[in-house]
Design a protein around this nucleic acid. Structure first.
Lengths: 344, 344
DNA sequence: ACCCCGTATTGGAACGCTCCAAACGTGGCG
DNA sequence: CGCCACGTTTGGAGCGTTCCAATACGGGGT
């Protein structure tokens, strides 16, 4: 006998523990236990409570939980202004995988804007005070970044996407192994028969850039190839990159590994000026696999950062630390993937 | 006489209303009023309470507020998986400006992952139930999008970035005026002396694409220029775009407005095959001003979506609706900015 | 001097949840 | 037969805030 009343869970209403308890004919706390410590209940009771929960479409109210337990199940992410020139690393995919991993664990990612001039510490403070954020995910961590130390002092769990390159790391991080990437690129080019493989990088001093240069250099050495005069530096813009690429071309390089897709574009342009075009005779592999890579003529081979995996790993590390504040610091280094297209 | 105790606000601690009240020598509620209805207090009392708040670094605990007032000051944003081919529109800048605007108003943006197959309605439901989200920001709204209707039925405030193109709009939205953009592009090209200005667009049927086509057509008509045979359609990938561009070139077009930067790239490639290069004789203006635009040779003029303004407008509309659920539906249409570079 | 009223301020109660200590069987054991 | 122990279940208390009704305080009118 189907009643007229809708069988599906009532939506949007505020179903409370008490209502579920009444429906299941048990006490308030029993329902709470059914959710948080099911093993405390007699199987029969558990079943009854579970049915009531489903029928009413009950979902615990996080604010009430947070108030009592002092755990908000909120993870903060300070989103920097990208209008300061350099666009933040391909943020959306990272944020998506971060969110997804968080959701699966019953957490949520909360954004807050961080002004570029400000260290953004006040933003972190605010989220901590007002929402009682359980932890933070950082990205775009520089050498001089004060955030790590600040959070560490206060015993706030966090995980960084990116190393600090300061040697002494005070917290967990996940990063992409740039050296492994450029190293793989060199080996691939060598396998194609190239011997004079150059490197187009940023000026020394940036952790990320130096790391990528190191991978190139290491692989060249292992293969017994000379690196002398094969490394050129340039700021990350097409103009400078073109000049640097021309210098590299002048040394007789037949292939190049670039620290970024933008720099790789310099190689394209240098070749064009010389009436040539990227390909088997003048190969190039970029870094980051930005959206432009497949659009170029010829399309650009590039090292893709495994942003999905990075997001998942960040969240996993963070959740583990939330579970145990004094577990040993952990690092995760993920290898970029060499996406082969026409340019190499 | 400076005591040894630090003068700066204690950080990370849990300062409560009660503590502030004790410090200021007033009742609990008076402190609450000092924050929420300052005009109720005697100026002198207000001043005293304010000092206490500053000294202790007090910040209201949102979870407690939410529990009592049923307003979480949380705005949900369902972030879709971008791995489904089409990358979501330049998300990071939008999210940043959204966050910033929200923060300024005392709100925060909460992310949740939306699986591509799923309509993501469960995600919205969850955030509503568990966190009592006050409203939502949607983006990537399609014609068949069920989210608007779903939210509307439940009386949940929301604002969409993007029109539904279904004629009957049930809620607020903010969008970029594609027609105004392409129209401005045409006028600019005409000002440069071009008469045979083509349009490189997507197949008819997509709201966004048709809108951009309409702008081109309208401006052409106003200028007394013929559009016959000047409109070519292509999927949004370089291969197809090149073919379409070649057809356009064959009609004798000297300039083209493209519905996307990817399509504009087709023009580059078509010219290259003909041994030519974009410029005064073969101008092109793209759409979206993607990061590739300044990197191309020659650099690509393009219509930039004012994402900062869009984010701000979204939040403003949403906040206004939060303030008054039954205010009339409002739409905001923002003009893209023509960013001129070498290609036109 | 007294009462009344508006302004300023106050503490109890409640939001929905979990911690805690206590209550409730129920069966084994002395 | 009574008592204790253990496995389950229960309601009170309180997290920090705001709503609400009540109180305290003055100052004017009578």
């Amino acid at each position: 006998m189907h009643a007229h009343s809708s069988p599906r869970p009532r939506t949007g209403s505020a179903v409370t523990l008490e209502m579920v308890a009444a429906r299941a004919g048990v006490g308030r706390q029993t329902v709470s236990n059914a959710i948080n410590s099911p093993d405390l209940l007699r199987p029969q009771t558990l079943e009854r409570v579970r049915r009531a929960i489903d029928e009413l479409g009950y979902r615990p109210h996080r604010a009430a939980q947070a108030l009592k337990t002092r755990a908000s199940r909120l993870i903060g992410y300070g989103i920097r202004s990208s209008s300061t020139g350099v666009p933040t690393p391909v943020l959306d995919q990272f944020l998506h995988s971060l969110s997804e991993a968080a959701d699966r664990a019953g957490y949520r990612v909360v954004l807050f804007a961080v002004a570029p001039e400000d260290d953004g510490l006040t933003g972190y403070q605010q989220l901590l005070d007002e929402h009682g954020a359980d932890g933070f995910v950082l990205s775009g961590t520089d050498r001089g970044d004060r955030r790590q130390g600040w959070l560490h002092e206060r015993g706030v769990p966090y995980v960084a996407f990116g190393r600090t390159w300061t040697g002494r790391d005070v917290g967990d991080w996940v990063d992409v192994d740039g050296a492994a990437g450029t190293s793989a690129a060199v080996r691939h080019l060598a396998g194609l028969g190239h011997r004079r493989i150059g490197f187009l990088g940023w000026p020394k001093g940036s952790g990320v850039g130096d790391d990528r240069a190191r991978g190139w250099q290491g692989a060249m050495r292992e293969l017994g190839l000379s690196t002398r005069g094969r490394r050129m530096e340039s700021a990350d813009d097409p103009g400078h990159a073109t000049e640097a690429a021309e210098r590299l071309l002048a040394t007789g390089a037949t292939a190049v590994v670039a620290a970024s897709d933008t720099l790789a574009l310099g190689w394209y342009q240098a070749l064009r000026r010389a009436g040539r075009t990227p390909g088997p005779e003048a190969a190039v592999i970029g870094f980051d696999d930005s959206p432009i890579a497949p659009l170029l003529f010829p399309s650009l081979s590039s090292l893709a950062q495994p942003l999905d995996a990075v997001g998942r790993a960040c969240m996993q590390l963070l959740l583990e630390r939330l579970g145990d504040h004094r577990r040993p610091i952990e690092h995760v280094l993920l290898e970029p993937e060499l996406v082969l297209r026409e340019s190499a």
